[in-house]
Design a protein around this nucleic acid. Structure first.
Length: 287
DNA sequence: TCCTCCCTGTTC
DNA sequence: GAACAGGGAGGA
């Protein structure tokens, strides 16, 4: 559920709360939440959190290891990354020192007087990988990530999409959801940007003209930018690192509105499945 | 390229 | 008490 705007919001709200704190200890309440790098776990003790950032739907916590860990365990390595994927229900909260884990707490980082960072996840699809920066590119998912949609102009993004998807048979919605094509888009923002661009989700991606692809790129960027301004979309569980809900769900034109009428033409919205995902669109406005 | 599965809380 | 929500891995 947390897509690019939600993970960006979490990074922004978490950063000021944990930057420059030091990790006293780590509690692993659900072993499978730690998907890789268990061997690096001891290297984090005494480390200082230097930044919180985002790439695609991944949240990255940068840790500067203690001098002891750097010399004795890491052969001089000066940065360790905690790479989190929140999947559908992952969330972060900072609670006061001494707070007990909650029902859905999977990992707990004791930050001394700064409190405790909780990684909570109801459905347990989310994970954390402890990685060294130079190992990121050995991780296929990371190495194959497409570009950040907000990291270039609409024209550049549109041309990238057109070039990447030429000759392929997948639908435009499946293409937007494919993290190798463009990074950070999930079901909500795929449906919303396709509505805004007036493109039917099941249309073959390769059938779109360059100009339509550039238009779609611009609409995707506009939707993502607006969603970040609104601190993301809160449906079901999403909260930022302060526990606050986002507001972009109030601006949904199609997502979650099946059976309702199109905001533009009053035609009943149709729901179907595309790329294995629930998909809502306007059969009249989206061709 | 597409389908199934993982998982739990909510909705029907 | 079943259907549904869905990102991405893995298999068909």
């Amino acid at each position: 559920m947390p897509e690019l705007p939600e993970v960006e919001t979490i990074a922004r709200t978490l950063r000021p709360q944990i930057r420059n704190t030091s990790i006293q200890s780590i509690g692993v309440l659900l072993p499978k939440a730690l998907q890789a790098g268990t061997n690096l776990l001891p290297c984090l003790t005494g480390g200082r959190i230097t930044n919180v950032s985002r790439r695609a739907k991944l949240l990255l916590v940068s840790v500067s290891p203690s001098v002891f860990a750097e010399k004795a365990l890491l052969k001089g390595e000066k940065e360790i990354l905690l790479v989190f994927h929140l999947k559908m229900t992952g969330a972060f909260f900072v609670h006061p020192a001494g707070t007990d884990p909650e029902k859905h707490t999977r990992l707990m980082f004791d930050l001394g007087l700064a409190g405790r960072l909780f990684f909570n996840d109801i459905r347990t699809f989310g994970y954390c990988r402890i990685m060294l920066p130079q190992d990121l590119n050995q991780w296929p998912f990371w190495a194959d990530l497409g570009p950040e949609p907000l990291g270039m102009s609409a024209k550049e993004l549109g041309l990238h999409l057109a070039e990447t998807l030429a000759g392929r048979k997948i639908s435009i919605k499946a293409a937007l959801l494919d993290q190798r094509v463009v990074a950070g888009v999930g079901n909500i923002y795929a449906d919303e940007s396709l509505f805004r661009a007036g493109i039917a989700p099941m249309l073959p991606a390769a059938s779109l003209s360059r100009n339509r692809m550039i238009r779609l790129a611009g609409d995707l960027q506009a939707i993502l930018t607006k969603a970040i301004e609104e601190c993301g979309s809160s449906i079901r569980n999403y909260r930022d690192a302060h526990g606050n809900a986002g507001a972009f769900q109030n601006a949904f034109a199609v997502y979650g509105r099946k059976g309702a009428r199109c905001l533009d033409c009053r035609t009943p919205l149709r729901d179907t499945r595309v790329a294995g995902r629930g998909t809502v669109y306007c059969p009249k406005c989206q061709k």
